[in-house]
Design a protein around this nucleic acid. Structure first.
Length: 441
DNA sequence: CTCTCAGTGATAACGCATCA
DNA sequence: TGATGCGTTATCACTGAGAG
């Protein structure tokens, strides 16, 4: 049995290390140099190794990754993980349409007060449900089909931004927080740089890098991936005394418990506030330290959320607004026709591979082109490839510039080639050129 | 190297409700 | 009855990881 001194030291070290974890990974404001942190960490590791009975699952040493798994167990979500309806339209009218719809559903008319909304970022990562029981992190699961996901607890434990114990005097019996695991752009770059130096494969983009990391069977490998986390909502909640009545207050409460919350968020009244947030983020999108899909608008009050309820798989009280897709230029190498399951024929352009918005695009369906445009896309054309979100669903290719058909050059034959008269070559002078040249090379 | 799976999101086609 | 719009399901495209 460990002496009281050792037990006290272990407890103190764990608190100290977690405090530095929060400062470093959540607040981005380290309190001590890395070397000092490493010293504390190694001291704790040594004490735990000498006194195995002091092991606890929330010890910071448990983040380094345990044994590889045979596979992921499936987890049934206590509360289904729904997706949010995504407005694909690029106009500010998305916010207006959402506000109009919400007011209509709530039965609000013109003189009635404006609805309060919370606006935040839609992170480009992987949705995860974190389950805390009495303040202790017990399980993490992917979204899966919304009903059943995969148990990725081992890998999530290695994400330093995620607290293994909530900072609260009265932890709820059950508190599930939902958020996005993602990779910061600078972390992504640094990781790839290290991989390149080691001659190892690099990641193509942060989103797939994050998703792939979480699906690693060996937590030790996942632990090497620089992942971050932001919370955006709740799952099952049991026994949360003084649970907030709004989304925005919930985020503040979670932040106080040590759960990372993105600072880029706002609350405001009516569509006007949403449009302002949308435009503000759009202007600064490239400067953000991580990739985003767009912004999300939510009705702030939980009682109004309950009143609005759900469609089949999507809440009526929230909507995502995507930013315009990124574009790149490439060349059409060929056009094939795909036969769908219903016999529908869809023309598909085979493209010269082009890197756009994090993925390499080599095919683009032409189905959503107007009939006229579709007929107009030809092999050899330079086209715009558009990519929405983080995948290439059906990339629109539109004609930008038709490669000019090589017009036969006008030339004057000066004489038969003196070097190789048998080959039939001539010495010619091309239009606009000063020097004569031999057509035989 | 190839195949399969899980994750992302998008559309086509169909079913259903509503309205003129 | 036909047109319209919403919601659901099936299918597709692409990446990374794992298995053989």
């Amino acid at each position: 049995m460990a002496s009281p001194d050792v037990m006290a030291r272990v407890t103190a070290l764990r608190q100290e290390i977690e405090r530095h974890n929060t400062a470093y990974y959540v607040l981005d404001q380290p309190l001590i140099p890395d070397a000092e942190y490493d010293r504390l960490f190694r001291e704790l590791q040594a004490l735990e190794a000498d006194n195995p009975e002091l092991y606890t699952p929330d010890s910071p040493t448990q983040r380094v990754g345990g044994k590889p798994l045979d596979g992921f167990a499936s987890v049934r979500h206590a509360v289904p993980m729904l997706s949010i309806h995504t407005e694909t339209d690029t106009e500010a009218s998305g916010a207006q349409a959402f506000d109009t719809q919400v007011r209509k559903e709530l039965g609000l008319r013109e003189p009635d007060p404006l609805v309060e909304y919370a606006a935040e970022l839609k992170f480009d990562g992987l949705a995860i449900n974190l389950r805390y029981e009495y303040g202790l992190f017990v399980q993490a699961a992917t979204r899966g089909d919304g009903e059943t996901g995969e148990d990725v607890t081992q890998n999530i434990r290695t994400v330093h931004a995620i607290p293994l114990r909530l900072i609260t005097e009265l932890p709820p019996a059950v508190l599930e927080v939902r958020g996005e695991v993602y990779m910061r752009r600078d972390d992504f770059e640094r990781y790839n740089e290290r991989q390149r130096e080691a001659g190892k494969p690099t990641l193509v983009n942060p989103r797939n890098g994050a998703a792939g990391s979480i699906r690693q069977l060996d937590p030790k490998l996942a632990a090497q991936r620089p992942l971050s986390f932001f919370v955006y909502g709740l799952g099952e909640v049991v026994g949360w005394k003084d649970m907030p009545a709004t989304h925005s207050e919930t985020l503040l409460a979670l932040e106080r418990m040590g759960v990372p919350v993105c600072g880029e968020r706002t609350i405001g009244l009516g569509a006007e506030a949403l449009i302002q947030f949308h435009d503000d983020i759009a202007a600064r999108r490239d400067q953000l330290p991580f990739d985003i899909d767009g912004v999300v608008y939510k009705v702030n009050r939980y009682d109004l959320q309950r009143e609005l309820g759900f469609r089949t798989r999507e809440p009526r009280w929230a909507v995502a607004h995507k930013y315009p897709a990124q574009e790149a230029l490439t060349t059409v190498l060929g056009i094939d026709v795909q036969v769908g399951r219903t016999g529908k024929l869809t023309p598909v352009a085979r493209l010269a591979p082009v890197f756009v918005g994090g993925v390499t695009v080599s095919n683009a369906t032409l189905h959503n082109q107007d009939e006229i445009d579709r007929k107009d896309v030809r092999v050899g054309d330079t086209v715009i490839v558009r990519r929405a979100g983080d995948v290439i669903p059906e990339v629109v290719a539109s004609v930008l510039e038709r490669r000019p058909q090589p017009a036969p050059p006008r030339f004057d034959i000066l004489q038969t080639c003196p070097v190789c008269p048998e080959c039939g070559s001539h010495v010619v002078r091309l239009e606009g050129e000063a020097a004569a040249r031999c057509t035989g090379g």
